[in-house]
Design a protein around this nucleic acid. Structure first.
Length: 878
RNA sequence: GAGACGUUAGCUCAGUUGGUUUAGAGCGCUUGCUUGACAGGCAAGAGGUCACUGGUUCGAUUCCAGUACGUCUCACCA
């Protein structure tokens, strides 16, 4: 057989993925096995795969495949969300390119375009996940706006409204002028930005004097309805009851006092614009001030501004500066850094704006969700997020759930007269309610007007673990009862509040039970300068290109190796490269084993027999370690255990021991054992590297159509022989030491050497010594009582080893090495003695600790003694 | 401004209830090898007053307090 020396992943990937699909290995239906369920964090339906998705979905696939191989009924539910702001923005932009303005379309016409866009671009990201090897049950693919999910969201809205948890009201909201919608507090990011502080004079009405006010937003002067100082501020107390004149518009407004104002800041004098600042809004309420909204919804100046009408707010700022300067009202302008809120979606500067919105009361319904995390029903990994979670949940604000968009779940509220409204699942029900509420039996559907707004996208995804199994519409269905609560949720920490907390809230509200037991929060994928990877920065590689370059298995390993839970991953091409190299290592080990000829007539060498025994113990030990790591969600460490197991133990030691000489055959027993071990290793690594392990597993033994590594059972954790493992570590040290001697003395490998051990042969396992003989090409191993002259020597533990050199010994070099060792041992002994000579240590420390120190002492003394003897012998030779 | 978390090798991180032969891994680095599975490899090696200062203790990388620096979250500073 001619197997290429480099693993070529491309073909195996497409072959095996379609094989798995064809045989329905990803499918799950309820049965009597234990379920293992993950719901995917739904990506944006029209989005494409980025590095964060790669990391996140690799972890989900690893967990799913592993659970499946543990005999559980594994179900990973895929789906996408409608991402209302982002998708609507894209559709609007696309229409604009075609010369169509959204405002010239009816709602239905617009939605037709939006669906068309969704169908055209939708699902690309799911196809990309397949390239990664994702073992989702694709028959269950969902969308937050498909019929069942849509109806569920509407039902929940109506239900929460009927429970009195949803209300409508005028509030100061975060307005995104670019998307022309309100967004929730969680969707605003504050960043420190350079701006300017303008000092502006306000004349005092009927007097000559003036006050100076500092503001960062001179364009909002047009909406000022008061000027305010702290009541304790003596500088302004004479202005009590007076009025000041707002520059530019010459409006007379009252001078008021409120303790909110900081005397120390700026001039201690604050202009009040209740329509455009959350604090001013509150002061406005306290002092019953009128509010003047000077902006349109797109961020241009409104009619009410009285100036700069139709001009963008930032341009209006510049015009205001000019105008103020012209009229002599501008005292000075300073550079100033302040926090500016920007929209998560559009990056537009958020405009605080008064508007009528729908809110969900959070305080009461969030309580069980807080408890669930605090009492450990829901585990956050890493647990440091618990504090953060508690802090947020204890200070939770009402959630603004309405968005001024068309793409999404339309709010099921109907208005019928003077702002009166009813909330119902259908227009028909709404009509009946409206008739009842108004007492007007002749109301008809024509008299009802449905709310124009849609719900926040998160208001649909917070139900995701429930709606994935249609649990709102049909709470008694089998899927829901079987799969809910799900097991693990894998997501990014940035959406802990956006999404995770709210899912837990919904879980308790609608099922009385948590939605999942574990939340694994991945890190963020960053570049080498620690910048978050993003399209706009252009610092992110194209995931599919990476898969083509390094193979899906290589990329998966690369993403996992460097991503302990909650730690950011500093991406570098060397990561998938390491993954690819590992795949290649596995491939070449396979090539070696596959290339052997088996001869039934030759007996199994002793070294091979013991190697097989040892390898099986190592395997058991690794299985144990890997299990432990998975239990703690230390996935990168579980992978590292497998990596070292395969690379160091299996390839570096085991295969080297059992490897027959070039072109010589191998015995049947060893060969069979090796194939079995290889099979187990492949199974152990399958969840990390599904493709190469399947490729190899299929060729390792005769397989029938329909068999697959992905439906085999994982080796289970068992007790392992610690003594054998320890003696073998000794053997490894011996081999390493002999290799060093060969290297130092320049003795080529094919030249045999003798090894003398100054010890009693009964203390040594003869078959293990055969391993040393084979790996070091020894002609003999001899146990001696006395030191051998003219030999290289080394020490393992307290035992001395010699390799006769026949005059090749470099006495000077040997001496200097020995003296170095002696120095180390003396230092070590001094350390130990410091403890042992401390009476209080001997009195207080537990017996086993003291015994250990005594053992250290006697070992060190023994080593020092033999080193000293050898040194003095060698010195005589000089 | 308040709080949370962190600071261990050049980089990214482990270090499991304080004692495990004077601290571990992967990558990177250095040196030597085309040794017939693998140069995407093999072998050997260098590299750390465990941020700093105190405290508790027979004993601290590990526990406590403070300092410095960093990351994140929340918050109304014009």
């Amino acid at each position: 057989m001619n197997i290429p020396s480099k693993y070529e992943p491309g073909k195996a990937e497409s072959t095996w993925y379609s094989y798995w699909m064809k045989h329905g290995f990803f499918k799950s239906t309820p049965d009597d096995r234990e379920p293992y369920t993950i719901v995917i964090p739904p990506p944006n339906v029209t989005g494409v795969l980025h590095m964060g998705h790669m990391l996140n979905n690799t972890i989900q696939d690893v967990l799913t495949r592993r659970a499946r191989m543990q005999g559980k009924n594994a179900c990973w539910v895929p789906g996408t969300d409608h991402a209302s702001i982002a998708t609507e923005a894209k559709v609007v932009a696309k229409l604009k390119e075609q010369g169509i303005e959204k405002k010239n379309l009816t709602r239905d016409e617009f939605l037709e375009h939006a669906w068309e866009w969704t169908h055209k671009h939708g699902g690309i990201i799911l196809e990309q996940l397949k390239r990664l090897g994702a073992s989702c049950d694709w028959d269950r693919t969902l969308f937050t706006m498909d019929d069942k999910r849509y109806d569920s969201v509407i039902k929940v809205f109506v239900d929460l409204h009927n429970k009195g948890l949803i209300y409508r009201g005028v509030r100061m909201v975060n307005w995104d002028p670019q998307a022309r919608t309100a967004v929730s507090d969680e969707e605003v990011n504050y960043t420190e930005e350079k701006s300017k502080l303008y000092y502006v004079k306000y004349r005092i009405a009927g007097e000559d004097g003036f006050v100076t006010v500092a503001t960062t937003r001179p364009e909002t002067i047009l909406g000022d309805t008061a000027v305010c100082a702290n009541p304790d501020d003596k500088r302004y107390s004479h202005l009590k009851g007076k009025k000041v004149i707002v520059p530019m518009v010459d409006r007379e407004v009252p001078f008021i006092f409120d303790s909110y104002v900081d005397k120390e800041f700026g001039t201690g004098c604050l202009k009040i614009t209740p329509a455009h600042d959350i604090n001013d809004y509150e002061i406005g309420i306290r002092h019953k001030l009128p509010s003047i909204d000077v902006f349109n919804e797109d961020g241009t100046m409104s009619e009410k501004a009285g100036m700069f009408i139709g001009v963008d707010r930032f341009q209006a700022r510049e015009l205001s500066e000019k105008e103020l300067r012209k009229s002599g009202s501008l005292v000075k302008v300073e550079n100033y850094n302040n926090k500016v809120g920007r929209s998560e979606r559009t990056n537009a500067v958020i405009e605080p704006r008064l508007s009528m919105q729908w809110f969900l009361k959070m305080e009461k319904i969030s309580k069980p969700a807080l408890d669930a995390v605090m009492n450990g029903d829901v585990h956050l990994h890493p647990s440091k997020f618990r504090n953060l979670y508690r802090h947020w949940m204890e200070n939770v604000h009402d959630w603004c759930i309405s968005r001024q968009l068309w793409w999404g779940h339309r709010i099921p509220a109907w208005y019928f007269s003077n702002g009166e409204y009813v909330v119902a699942e259908t227009e028909q029900e709404a009509l009946e309610l409206a008739r009842k509420k108004s007492g007007n039996k002749s109301l008809s559907a024509k008299d009802l007007v449905q709310d124009e707004d849609v719900l926040d996208t998160w208001f649909s995804s917070w139900l995701w673990p429930i709606t994935c199994f249609d649990g709102i519409n049909d709470p008694e269905n089998n899927d829901y009862k079987y799969y809910y609560p799900t097991n693990d949720l894998i997501t990014a920490p940035e959406i802990l509040f956006f999404w995770v907390a709210r899912m837990i809230i919904a879980g308790y509200e609608y099922r009385g039970e948590k939605p999942f037991s574990n939340v694994y929060l991945t890190g963020l994928v960053r570049d080498q300068q620690r910048r978050k990877m993003s399209k706009s920065l252009g610092n992110s590689p194209e995931p599919i290109d990476l898969i083509e370059k390094y193979g899906a298995d290589g990329v998966r390993v690369g993403m996992l190796l460097c991503s302990p839970a909650g730690n950011d991953l500093l991406y570098d091409d060397s990561l998938p490269e390491q993954g690819r190299n590992f795949a290649n290592k596995i491939w070449n080990a396979f090539r070696l084993v596959k290339g052997w000829h088996v001869d039934d007539s030759i007996p199994q060498p002793e070294s091979s027999e013991v190697a097989v025994k040892w390898m099986n113990e190592v395997l058991k030990k690794s299985v144990h370690e890997i299990d432990n790591n998975f239990k703690k969600f230390r996935i990168s460490e579980a992978l590292m255990s497998s990596y070292k197991l395969f690379w160091d133990e299996f390839s570096g030691w085991y295969l080297e021991i059992i490897k027959p000489e070039y072109q010589k055959p191998i015995d049947r027993k060893t060969f069979q054992a090796t194939v079995d071990i290889f099979e187990k290793l492949a199974e152990l690594m399958h969840s990390f590297m599904p493709f190469i392990t399947e490729e190899i597993w299929q060729m390792l033994k005769e397989r029938k159509d329909g068999e697959s590594i992905m439906v085999t059972r994982l080796p289970e954790s068992k007790r392992y022989n610690k003594e054998l493992l320890a003696s073998f570590e000794n053997i490894k040290e011996t081999v390493t030491a002999v290799r060093s001697v060969r290297k130092e003395k320049d003795i080529p490998n094919r030249e045999t050497i003798e090894l003398l051990i100054m010890a009693d042969s009964s203390e040594y396992d003869n078959s293990l010594m055969k391993v040393v003989s084979k790996l070091c090409n020894l002609s003999s191993v001899e146990f001696v009582e006395k030191r051998r002259e003219g030999a290289a020597s080394f020490m393992i533990g307290t035992t001395q080893y010699f390799i006769p050199l026949e005059g090749k010994l470099d006495v000077e070099a040997e001496l200097s090495k020995l003296r170095q060792d002696l120095e180390y041992d003396r230092g070590f002994l001094a350390n130990v003695m410091k403890k042992l000579e401390n009476e209080r240590f001997v009195q207080n420390a537990p017996a086993n600790v003291i015994d250990l120190e005594r053992k250290k002492k006697s070992d060190a003394e023994a080593r020092i003694k033999s080193l000293g003897e050898r040194i003095s012998h060698l010195e005589k030779l000089l």
